[in-house]
């Protein structure tokens, strides 16, 4: 029985460790996923705005730059 108790404790410990590790891993994965969503969105927005101003930048507003400050900053908890 004492031996069995020890075994139970050990199993509990590894489960606890795994729980904490998984929670930490999920938080990290979530944050990184959010970050990559933001990066990809930024790529698309930058390219979209760049192409949108292509004609004007080559003619009546020569060399006009995209206003990158209008693009959203990185926020982890942002539903938009």
């Amino acid at each position: 029985m004492p031996s069995g108790l020890f075994l139970q404790n050990r199993e509990g410990q590894s489960t606890l460790e795994m729980t904490f590790a998984l929670i930490a891993a999920f938080i990290l994965i979530f944050a990184v996923l959010r970050f990559f969503i933001w990066v990809n969105k930024a790529f698309v927005l930058q390219n979209h705005d760049y192409e949108l101003t292509r004609t004007s930048a080559a003619s009546y507003q020569l060399g006009q730059n995209v206003d990158y400050t209008q693009h959203p900053d990185f926020k982890i908890f942002d539903n938009e």
């Binding site: 970050f35 990559f36 990066v39 930024a42 790529f43 930058q46 390219n47 760049y50 930048a57 080559a58 020569l62 060399g63 006009q64 730059n65 995209v66 990158y68």
Partner: peptide, 22 residues
């Protein structure tokens, strides 16, 4: 991720600046 995003921005800006010099 940040490096490529920033590099894309700078490439776009530089091309427009170069266009302006013409």
């Amino acid at each position: 991720g940040l490096r490529y995003k920033n590099q894309q921005q700078l490439n776009q800006i530089t091309f427009r600046n170069a266009l302006k010099t013409t």
